[in-house]
Design a protein around this nucleic acid. Structure first.
Length: 612
RNA sequence: GGGACUGUAGUUCAACCGGUUAGAGCACCGCCCUGUCACGGCGGAAGUUGCGGGUUCGAAUCCCGUCAGUCCCGCCA
């Protein structure tokens, strides 16, 4: 049916008779002569057709062409087309499938590429024919292939784990599947293969990976789909540092294959505490400065009640120093109603105090900062609330020089961090501090390590696992005596790590607990009653007692990784058939009604009514 | 669960403060054209302005509801 790909024809094919198959990308009808651009996945080639041969050749008609390859006339070469030196003189055209309806949108890249996403999803097969999606799916393929090739070389074995599994507590909502055979009982789709990959380690595989589909029934975002793909990895007998080393070499191999970029190794490491202190987030974007500076110790002694009160209540006062901020950011923008202020507010901050650092003129009202005389512009309450020495120390610590704008957050530490993190990211974009996509600084990898084991869930008034309840605590924080574990665990650090790229979490993992007593203690710490722990995780606890090796691993968000590699802003553009924000498939109209008999077979009755 | 934005011809967009016969490019249909490559020229068809209600002499435009899509907050161990 086909002898060549459309995009493969070059000068060396001249005089050959070829058979091509593909879609009509465009046609240019000159009356006595018709030019067709025929497109297949390899590219596009111009076909020259005698009108006698041509029937109805609308765009996207599926065509077989038999013809001879010919060098184009000198004046008709097309430099912009890979096949632009040649053309095929058609001797025979066969319409393999005609276009029988109006096209919902144009496929050819030459037409307006901006099509409503709703339409693209409803006719995804057409969208996949377009250059952008074709490129993204190939990039996804080469990303996965690079990972497989690398892991193969490191002795890993790819193992599939169940899609029908059991529901486990904590974490996201499960997608449930009723069991017909075991009436009244339910499977859950896996939120991740977490327990199975640990059991594979107990099973002696030592090195496992999987391109694993995961399911979480939570509300969606641009980078969240109800089903998504993790590159899931687990190893035995490796220390944390060895795991990090392995994984950054994996990432480097992927970036080399997919983008041709050599990433410098090792990636920087930052402790969770340092990340929170300096950036206010556990996934900092370190491509630009604007770091957070903690001035709580100075503020606590000041007469400015907003500051001293925040610290007295156990909170913090932190600031961001913005060099040149005085000129770049007007008072309107940083006061209530302004865009910068609104960013802080949106993150929960009550306000955003500021100090403008200026040239010092009058020694009376100026401050000696590292031998330089600087002055300030700010509200009276701040000016009056600080002693000269306090203000000088604050200015010195923030690194401010004349022209610098200082923005302050005060309140409970979590809110201050959240607000200033948001302001920092907003300002970096506004002030153009984020490096361009093409530059080397555009790929800023970073390991965040030493996460705490637990965070406090104030709604449920209990500790919860920050990562998941199978992370191993840092032995240095735990002590060797099991009797001390219960007291030491709540404040212990985990042997957990996240890989962060440009402020986005690309993956995360940990060493796992391989001691059943410690595992029981952790489950107890997060408030899971003993009987419940046995019922839910008995199989794991038993496995730990039957020769579980020390092990650990990681999982990368593959969709997100490909999204970043492709320069896309939504993971939907890296998935062949994604769902909408309402978790609906516009192509198949899923989810959909089922027959009443299907429900009866499954021992399920729906309580849904449209009035709900 | 909450907030914001969007919905006009097959499609991408326009239509200013409530008053037009709701326009334009591409696609589609017809005619012309042998070197174009986003070909060109002439002509044509194409609209329940997402849907339902309201305000008004008059609604694409204002208001309410609803559906769909997008972004965000909550949520996502």
């Amino acid at each position: 049916m086909r002898s060549h790909g459309c995009g493969d024809l070059r000068r060396d094919a001249v005089d050959q008779t070829v058979q091509l198959c593909g879609w009509v990308d465009r046609r240019r009808d000159h009356g006595g002569l018709i030019f067709l651009d025929l497109r297949d996945r390899s590219g596009t080639i111009q076909i020259t057709v005698d009108p006698e041969l041509a029937g109805n050749l609308r765009n996207e008609t599926v065509l077989q062409v038999v013809g001879r390859v010919q060098l184009r006339p000198e004046e008709s070469l097309n430099e912009r087309l890979a096949t632009g030196a040649v053309e095929v003189i058609a001797s025979q055209l066969t319409v393999l499938n005609a276009i029988k309806k109006t096209l919902p949108f144009a496929v050819s890249v030459h037409d307006d590429g901006n099509v409503r996403e709703e339409l693209r999803l409803r006719h995804r097969y057409l969208d996949l024919r377009r250059e952008r999606m074709a490129r993204n799916l190939r990039l996804r393929h080469s990303t996965i292939r690079a990972a497989r090739t690398f892991l193969e070389g490191e002795g890993f074995i790819e193992v599939e784990t169940p899609i029908l599994t059991r529901s486990t507590p904590e974490g996201a909502r499960d997608y449930l599947v009723p069991s017909r055979v075991c009436g009244g009982e339910w499977f859950a789709l896996p939120q991740s293969p977490q327990l199975f990959k640990q059991l594979l380690m107990v099973g002696g595989l030592e090195r496992y990976y999987q391109v694993a589909r995961c399911f979480r029934d939570e509300d969606l975002r641009a980078d969240r789909q109800p089903e998504f793909t993790q590159l899931d990895i687990e190893v035995s007998f490796l220390e944390q540092e060895e795991i990090l080393d392995l994984n950054e070499r994996l990432i480097a191999a992927i970036w080399k294959t997919a983008k041709g970029i050599e990433l410098p190794l090792p990636f920087p490491r930052l402790t969770w505490q340092e990340a929170m202190d300096r950036y206010g987030t556990d996934r900092p974007d370190t491509r630009y400065g604007l770091e957070l500076v903690d001035v709580s110790d100075i503020a606590t002694h000041s007469g400015f009640k907003v500051f001293s009160g925040a610290v007295a209540a156990g909170g913090a006062v932190k600031c961001i120093a913005i060099p040149g901020g005085n000129e770049a950011l007007s008072n309107v923008r940083i006061k209530p109603g302004g865009d910068v202020f609104s960013e802080a507010q949106a993150a929960g901050a009550a306000g955003l105090a500021f100090i403008r650092v200026i040239e010092g003129v009058d020694p009376e009202t100026s401050f000696d900062v590292g031998g330089n005389l600087v002055g300030i512009n700010t509200i009276g309450a701040i000016k009056d609330g600080f002693t000269k020495a306090q203000m000088a120390e604050l200015l010195e610590r923030s690194g401010a020089t004349p022209g610098t704008l200082l923005l302050f957050g005060a309140g409970d530490t979590a809110t201050v961090n959240k607000a200033l993190d948001r302001v920092r990211q907003y300002l970096a974009r506004e002030l153009g501090l984020v490096p361009a996509e093409a530059s080397n600084e555009a790929w800023n990898f970073l390991w965040v390590v030493d996460f705490p084991m637990f965070g406090f869930n104030s709604e449920e008034n209990r500790l919860e696992a920050l990562h998941h309840p199978f992370c191993a605590p840092n032995p240095a924080d735990l002590g060797s005596d099991p009797a001390s574990w219960a007291a030491a665990l709540p404040s212990a650090r985990a042997q957990a790590y996240d890989l962060v790229l440009n402020g986005l979490e690309l993956g995360g993992g940990s060493l796992r607990i391989h001691d059943s007593a410690l595992q029981r203690q952790v489950l107890q710490t997060i408030g899971l009653p003993q009987e419940e722990a046995e019922r839910q995780f008995g199989f794991l606890l038993e496995a730990l007692d039957l020769g579980a090796p020390p092990h650990g691993g990681i999982a990368f968000g593959l969709d997100r990784m490909v999204m970043l590699l492709a320069g896309e802003e939504s993971i939907r553009d890296t998935i062949a058939f994604p769902k909408t924000q309402q978790a609906r498939c516009l192509l198949t109209q899923a989810p959909a009604d089922v027959a009443a008999q299907q429900l009866r077979d499954l021992h399920v009755a729906s309580t849904w009514s449209d009035a709900d």
